[in-house]
Design a protein around this nucleic acid. Structure first.
Ligand SMILES: Nc1ncnc2c1ncn2[C@@H]1O[C@H](COP(=O)(O)OP(=O)(O)OP(=O)(O)O)[C@@H](O)[C@H]1O
Length: 712
DNA sequence: TGGTGAGCGGTTTTT
DNA sequence: CCGCTCACCA
């Protein structure tokens, strides 16, 4: 990521500020307060301010009111495409232009994609280096803070971040530590435990309550489950590891349990701004409140109609309750949609009005007319894929770049047939789903070697790395770990390990290369070059292993070379590892079909598409049972959340939308089933869409094409 | 330790 | 239907 160097130093701001006092504990009473430096502001004459950004021209009055509003709590609640993100970004720009140091601004959101888009926009506006801003996802900001301050709650700065799979394994290990009989009584597995645990943490609710609601059949096991949770936490503590939730939970603990840190945090950030606030959960809400406690410059924006993360404990109670928690909050609304044509907006508004629980919002179109959204039934899944592929090509011919087109769906598996079709036709695409690149087994194997060097107490990684060697499996790996675990630095202990006690014959010999490998990795030159470290691991042990172990060993080694190239931009192992677990993007096969190209159609889940926009969008699989998913369709809240998801999907489009659904599909047992159109389609009034019928071209050789014809 | 085969179970969505 | 887990064997 290259960021333009900031220029125009002199044009900085309208006011010259004298040094602002640092916050530190008062030696007398121990309370935190600013140094008694007198603050004096030298004002520029009225009208003489020059801003690089032309706020008057680029914002409407409603938006400008938010951008120019002074300090204090701010809530913006508004519909899709009304410029919430834009307003937030301009507010950040304005703050910086008015002299706030970027490092004193905290800018948060939930998904990586949205975070990146937000930071990119700030950068474009000001050519300021956004790395100075404390901005990103809640998790990445939490992680940055914990590296610096986590020692206050017993976390050393080199902690490992556990991904979902890791944390599931730690749960399984915890269960087996306690020697719980998992078979007789059907004890929940790691992933189930992890779900329950995570939901409890994120909602801040009491565990028995969560258990009763989400997995009542395990109620008799409550006591044991709680013991496993405790063991899980213990394991993380001794392994110096954090799961995703810990990045938030420990952040909150710093705020609530370590008063000096709490005060320092709250004082260090003049402004806290949150996008997509409707998708925060209790834990994140508490964090925002904690960070804003002293200065109360908390600006949040969101849209309750786009709340789509209740499955991980998000609740729009946060956004609706904001005015109560901040009685002095200024509440703003934005009512003009800048993104979509009136036709698209009419469909979206009409759909969302079916939700009982909704907060009425004005949302009018500002753009000129466009085509009616198309509703397109297709005979089956492969016809759906062919239709979409053809339509994408037509749109491309009409002048849209491929990158301005997106296909959205409810669940990742739904993209499969389309991928095949796009590949067949050589249409480049980018897919944001599937096993993510850094979660692939071979990638994690190699990373385990680096993790061990960074955090020698990382049991999981030790074992993972050890098991790469011949004759070493779970048993021997445990023996080795047991021999070094007690040492203050297991890395040192491992290198000094003479004849490891009671290793099976042959296993010991296998450790020799590992020992020299570790020694080499621990050298300054490799510690500062993740790319070289990766290549070194691959060349010295992993290449042989991969070729022997995997039928597609070659392809996996190519992945690892890609990994090394990606790592090239990092200059330290910890920095690299952190990004890799937190910024876990794209599947291994992300670029398909033909030449690598920048211009690619995007295939994405609706969840990941939030806050983004494209010229034209296809929403596929709009069949009852698929979108809404039949799981969600069992409760009224579930359906309403799915409908919000549909609303998000449709409102991603600026110019044109197609809604497609197959009438016949194979269910998961391989049986063909007839599918009804999604209720989200059938409940729409006639006049907001155009119904298409698709027929196969009559048997003419060559050119395949289907003529979509409007009916009625 | 690691490979094989029978049987089970199972589809959201993210960090 | 198919991928994955678990139990069993070399
Ligand atoms: N005043 C304006 N002038 C011109 N373009 C605008 C204005 N306000 C917003 N836009 C454009 O409208 C589009 C939608 O804005 P933005 O993404 O900020 O909306 P949003 O409310 O965050 O949307 P959503 O919640 O649906 O993600 C963007 O392309 C943005 O640049």
């Amino acid at each position: 990521m290259s960021s333009p160097k900031s220029c125009h130093k002199g044009a900085a701001g309208p006011e010259v500020r004298l040094q602002c006092g640092k916050w530190r504990p008062d030696p007398q009473c121990g309370k935190w307060r600013p140094d008694p430096i007198k603050k004096y502001v030298l004002r520029t004459e009225v009208g003489a301010r020059t801003y690089r950004v032309d706020y008057d021209r680029e914002l409407n009055e409603e938006q400008k009111a938010v951008v120019l509003a002074g300090g204090g709590p701010i809530l913006v609640i508004a519909g899709a495409g009304s410029g919430k993100t834009r307003t937030l970004v301009y507010r950040v720009a304005r703050l910086i232009e008015s002299g706030t140091d970027p490092s004193r601004i905290m800018l948060l959101t939930f998904t990586n994609k949205a975070a990146r888009e937000m930071l990119r926009r700030v950068e474009m506006l000001l050519s300021v280096d956004t790395r100075r801003l404390m901005g990103g996802t809640f998790h990445s900001v939490g992680s940055r803070l914990l590296r610096r301050f986590g020692s206050r709650i017993g976390l050393s700065p080199n902690f490992t971040i556990l991904d979902e799979e890791d944390s599931r394994e730690v749960f399984d290990a915890a269960t087996s530590d306690l020697k719980i009989q998992t078979l007789e009584k059907r004890f929940p597995k790691g992933d189930v435990l992890s779900d329950l645990y995570s939901f409890t943490i994120n909602t801040g609710r009491r565990f028995p309550e969560v258990l009763a609601e989400r997995a009542p059949h395990f109620l008799p096991l409550e006591e044991e489950i709680v013991r496993v949770f405790q063991r899980y936490q213990e394991r993380k503590r001794t392994g110096n590891a954090c799961d995703y939730d810990d990045l938030l939970l420990s952040w909150k603990r710093l705020l609530s349990e370590v008063p000096e840190i709490a005060a320092q945090f709250a004082a260090s950030y003049d402004h806290v701004l949150v996008d997509e606030y409707q998708d925060t959960n209790q834990l994140q809400g508490d964090i925002v409140d904690g960070m804003g406690k002293i200065r109360r410059n908390v600006a949040v924006v969101g849209d309750d109609a786009q709340a789509i993360y209740s499955f991980r404990g998000a609740s729009f109670a946060n956004i609706l309750g904001f005015p109560e928690r901040y009685p002095d909050a200024k509440v703003f609304r934005l009512t003009l949609n800048y993104r979509s044509t009136p036709e698209i907006l009419a469909l979206a508004n009409s759909s969302i009005s079916h939700n009982q629980k909704q907060f009425e919002k004005d949302l009018r179109a500002s753009r000129g007319e466009g085509p009616l959204p198309a509703v397109v039934p297709l005979a089956d899944v492969s016809e759906q894929a062919r239709f979409i592929a053809q339509r994408l090509l037509e749109w491309h011919d009409e002048g849209d770049a491929l990158a301005d087109l997106a296909v959205l769906y409810r669940a990742h598996y739904q993209a499969l047939e389309l991928q095949i079709e796009l590949t067949r036709r050589g249409i480049p695409y980018e897919i944001r789903s599937g096993t993510r690149f850094f979660e692939q087994r071979h990638v994690k194997d190699v990373l385990a070697f680096l993790k061990v060097v960074v955090n020698p107490k990382d049991e999981l990684s030790w074992k993972r790395a050890l098991k790469i060697f011949p004759r070493i499996g779970e048993r021997s790996a445990s023996t080795v770990w047991a021999a070094i675990a007690g040492s203050p630095d297991p890395l040192v202990a491992f290198r000094a390990l003479g004849e490891p006690a009671s290793l099976p014959r042959g296993a010991d010999a296998a450790l020799k290369p590992f020992r020299s490998l570790v020694t080499r990795l621990d050298s300054p030159s490799l510690r500062s070059s993740p790319a070289e470290a990766i290549r070194f691991v691959v060349e010295s042990v992993y290449a042989d292993y991969a070729r022997a172990k995997f039928p597609n060993g070659g392809a996996r080694l190519d992945d690892l070379e890609q990994l090394a190239q990606f790592a090239q931009q990092y200059e330290s192992l910890p920095g690299f590892l952190e990004e890799v677990t937190l910024f876990n993007e794209l599947s291994g096969e992300d670029v398909a079909a033909g030449e690598p190209s920048d211009d690619r159609v995007v295939l994405s889940s609706v969840h990941q598409a939030k806050s983004l926009e494209w010229s034209r969008v296809v929403v596929m699989w709009l069949s009852e049972g698929r979108f809404p998913s039949y799981r969600a369709a069992t409760t009224e809240e579930g359906v309403e959340e799915e409908r919000r998801l549909f609303y998000v999907a449709v409102t991603r489009a600026k110019n044109e939308v197609a809604l497609t659904y197959p009438m016949l599909a194979r269910d998961r047992y391989g049986v063909d089933v007839i599918l009804e159109p999604s209720r989200f389609v059938s409940e729409l009034p006639e006049d907001v869409s155009e119904r298409w019928t698709v027929e196969l071209e009559a048997e003419v050789p060559s050119e395949e094409s289907k003529k979509p014809e409007p009916v009625n």
